[in-house]
């Protein structure tokens, strides 16, 4: 890492610091002999769009998996609302208010939008073991999420297969919103999307922020995050090479940080 590279020390969290919404402090993650992340710190402010970028193998996925509970750090700590947290699986991260939309979206094409949104989490009616899926509530809540939180016109009763790539991304985001998270992590949300679809997803991310969500975008595409993220963290070979305001960095500088860990 370059000595003149920007650091994160200006807003690195400390235990009890209620400033950032979600933060990692001096996190290290080792898989066998491979050090995937080494001494990584970041803090994401409430209602911020924060992008984590890096080349393939930089540690983006590992960092994302730490934040959403898939992995536990080998060393270091995670903080949520200033309190230290340790997630023992994605369910615990979800319960704490962190939802992740993975790159492959994990949508079931043959099922309708509402069923996809609530799969495994259906509104129910009845008592105990005699409760059943409440379809009326399912469709109503799906419509509310799509209309209110995403501000999009997607029919909850239409099959997912009926939708374009951009709309499928929105459906996956809607599923994350069904758990009413505070933090939404998006993994490569516009990769393989057309220009129109990319704009659709970017506008939706802005809508999420307007509706009070904190958003972390994990990406290797600079086009994806420029003009969208408030700040950008650049991972290089498992270390945080820089954290910078988007307005303070050029595409060339970011690209240089991604491939060499140094500003050009």
């Amino acid at each position: 890492m370059s000595s003149d590279a920007p650091t994160v020390s200006d807003d690195a969290p400390t235990a009890g610091d209620a400033g950032p919404k979600i933060a990692a402090e001096n996190v290290r993650k080792v898989f066998g002999r491979i050090v995937a992340l080494d001494d990584v710190s970041l803090s994401v402010r409430e209602n911020e769009i924060f992008a984590v970028v890096g080349d393939n193998g930089a540690g983006k996925s590992t960092l994302m998996n730490l934040l959403c509970g898939v992995h536990r750090p080998t060393q270091g700590s995670l903080f949520l609302d200033g309190r230290p947290v340790a997630f023992d699986g994605p369910d615990e991260a979800r319960a704490a208010g962190i939802e992740t939309v993975y790159q492959d979206l994990a949508l079931m094409d043959d099922l309708d939008v509402a069923t996809n949104i609530f799969m495994g989490n259906f509104p129910r009616k009845g008592v105990g073991p005699f409760s059943v899926v409440d379809w009326e509530e399912t469709y109503e809540r799906a419509a509310t999420i799509v209309d209110t939180h995403l501000e999009r016109d997607i029919d909850p009763r239409a099959e997912v297969a009926y939708h374009s790539g951009g709309e499928r991304q929105l459906i996956a985001i809607a599923r994350a919103l069904a758990f009413d998270p505070d933090v939404v992590i998006l993994d490569e949300p516009t990769s393989a999307l057309s220009v129109d679809a990319t704009e659709l997803v970017q506008e939706t991310v802005r809508t999420l922020r307007r509706n009070g969500k904190t958003i972390i975008i994990v990406s290797h595409s600079l086009d994806e995050i420029f003009g969208l993220a408030d700040r950008i963290g650049v991972l290089y070979r498992g270390s945080m090479a820089a954290v910078t305001n988007t307005a303070d960095v050029s595409t060339d500088e970011l690209r240089s940080l991604m491939v060499s860990g140094e500003r050009s």
Binding site: D91, Y102, D104, L105, A106, L107, M108, D109, D110, L111, T115, M119, G120, F122, V132, V133, W135, R175
Partner: peptide, 24 residues
Amino acid sequence: RYTAFGQAVYAVGSDEEAARAVGI
């Protein structure tokens, strides 16, 4: 139609990997 199990069967039939990813 009305149970989580029934919907899980449809989910597995539509895309087993996706179903696993959403917690089925």
